[in-house]
């Protein structure tokens, strides 16, 4: 646009800037070429598989066909059948993910605040705490979840203590309950909440807090009017990074749950795919999961999204 406007002006100006413009345009094209591998990757490894998934979700099993044999069709009823059977599981997955996200936020925000703001002057301590925050990633996700199984087991310290103080009935248990699954989700996704908030709070200008104090705001008001709004984009990123994977997770549900009251949608997709060998059903559920998450995220962004993310 701008080049054309320039071009219509006097010849002298046009000639002088032509070289620059060409160079600039070339530069622009280089940028486009650099994006190309990424775009091809996206098309090949995301768009195409999603299309295959969509197509597969409409396949049908011809009468008398062997298990695992399906033919292309437009069997939209696959969706109806799966949704009818598994809508409670889908709702439960979102519900568990939501609770885990809120818990992770309540636990994670103070952690991030402590490291990013309170300990800003204490380099060593801050560094140690940061490492501790990331440390869980150094060991396997599965092993850590297995460890939780031990911690929450009937003979374990927590279950025994809860029974001793009558918070848990004598014949009650923790593993294979929603409590265990939500606890596992919260634990496993906590770093995804803390790190974005930390990154955000780390840039918080503490002079603003002093200014707030100077203007007679008490600490609570300072927090709600200054700190929280300024860290909103971190909170926003953290909640998304926690909620999305948590909703599709099945490791926590299958290691700490494996009970009809704890089944999550990821487990059902796995079971439809590998146990029942119902590829269309598995594909339909995956697609429903993907679309529902997308819709929820769009609503969330519309409602709470900060400007940078829009």
């Amino acid at each position: 646009m701008s080049s054309r406007v320039l071009g219509r002006r006097g010849k002298k100006l046009d000639l002088r800037s032509a070289e620059e413009l060409r160079a600039e345009r070339r530069k622009g094209r280089t940028g486009q070429y650099l994006v190309l591998p990424g775009m091809i990757g996206l098309a090949l490894f995301f768009a195409l598989p999603v299309l295959v998934l969509l197509a597969m979700s409409l396949y049908t099993k011809p009468p008398g066909a062997e298990i695992g044999e399906f033919v292309p069709a437009l069997q939209f009823s696959n969706y109806a059948v799966m949704l009818e059977a598994y809508w409670p599981v889908l709702l439960r997955s979102f519900w568990f993910a939501l609770i885990a996200t809120v818990l992770a936020l309540l636990i994670g925000y103070p952690m991030a605040y402590l490291v990013a703001v309170r300990l800003r002057q204490h380099g060593l301590l801050k560094g140690i705490l940061l490492v501790l925050l990331i440390a869980p990633f150094f060991s396997s996700f599965i092993l850590r979840t297995q460890a939780w199984k031990q911690i929450l087991s009937d003979e374990g310290f927590i279950a025994q203590t809860l029974k001793a103080v009558s918070l848990l009935p004598a014949d009650g248990h923790l593993t294979a309950t929603p409590i265990a699954v939500v606890a596992g989700l919260t634990y496993n996704f906590l770093p995804f909440m803390v790190l974005p908030i930390y990154a955000n709070l780390d840039r918080l200008d503490t002079r603003l807090l002093e200014a707030s104090g100077d203007l007679y705001a008490n600490p609570v008001t300072t927090f709600t009017k200054v700190t929280l709004p300024l860290s909103a984009s971190g909170v926003f990123a953290g909640t998304l990074l926690t909620f999305i994977p948590a909703a599709g997770d099945y490791i926590n549900a299958s290691l700490l749950g494996n009970n009809r009251n704890t089944t999550m949608i990821g487990q059902v997709i796995d079971s439809r795919f590998f146990r029942v060998i119902d590829y269309p059903g598995a594909a339909a559920l995956s697609f429903v999961l993907m679309v529902s998450i997308l819709i929820l995220v769009i609503i969330y962004i519309r409602r709470f999204g900060t400007r940078e993310l829009m």
């Binding site: 598989p49 594909a283 697609f287």
Partner: peptide, 23 residues
């Protein structure tokens, strides 16, 4: 399972595979 991507790759091979004869 979550992303349904690797799944889709498998689906492609499974879906187009045994469709020639049935049972």
């Amino acid at each position: 399972g979550a992303a349904g991507l690797a799944l889709a790759g498998l689906l492609a091979s499974c879906g187009t595979g045994g469709t020639g004869d049935t049972g």
